[in-house]
């Protein structure tokens, strides 16, 4: 039995969760439930791989009550990666405005914070904070999945 055998051999892949982070946003009032909408505003996709890992089996952000959703209307948190390009500034703003309040923005990666290596590029408008208000920043190029999970746990409070 192929798949059953693999499920048995793999067992539990998830690594033990680190202790709950100290910093939190009590004002968010989300009570251990965070729905995340992800926007790539012009990233090189390095950060996307790490965000994907954060929701994969090893880091498993879902055990902390964090879930990716398909619509900004369902989301509490917007994760944004990459420097905001000229073409993505409008869609990013529209996505932020489509979220119900209170909505938080997490800027993931160095590019989202200060444009990183893309600073000064002809297609780059600026960092994420120039377009939408940023509540949490995750440094790194790219940031480790564990750092992304820790930032999202800080928002969810779990």
């Amino acid at each position: 039995m192929g798949l059953i055998g693999k499920i048995r051999d793999a067992g539990r892949v998830a690594e033990p969760a680190p202790p709950q982070p100290e910093q939190g946003l009590p004002a968010a009032g989300l009570g251990g439930s965070v729905q995340v909408r992800h926007v790539d505003a012009g990233s090189c996709n390095g950060c996307e791989i790490e965000v994907g890992q954060a929701f994969g089996p090893t880091y498993d952000a879902e055990r902390h009550g964090v879930r990716l959703v398909a619509s900004p209307r369902h989301a509490d948190v917007l994760t944004v990666t990459g420097p905001v390009t000229v073409n993505m500034a409008g869609p990013l703003r529209a996505t932020y405005e489509a979220m119900p309040r209170p909505g938080l923005v997490v800027a993931v990666g160095d590019c989202a914070r200060d444009c990183g290596v893309f600073a000064g590029g002809y297609g780059v408008l600026g960092p994420v904070s120039d377009v939408v208000p940023v509540d949490v920043q995750v440094p790194g190029c790219p940031p480790e999945p564990a750092a992304i999970v820790a930032a999202l746990r800080g928002v969810s409070g779990r």
Binding site: A10, G32, Q35, G65
Partner: peptide, 14 residues
């Protein structure tokens, strides 16, 4: 899937 998964009451929290 080899994940730890959320709590049973997570949909209630949501």
């Amino acid at each position: 899937e080899g994940r730890a998964g959320g709590r049973l009451v997570q949909p209630w929290r949501d």
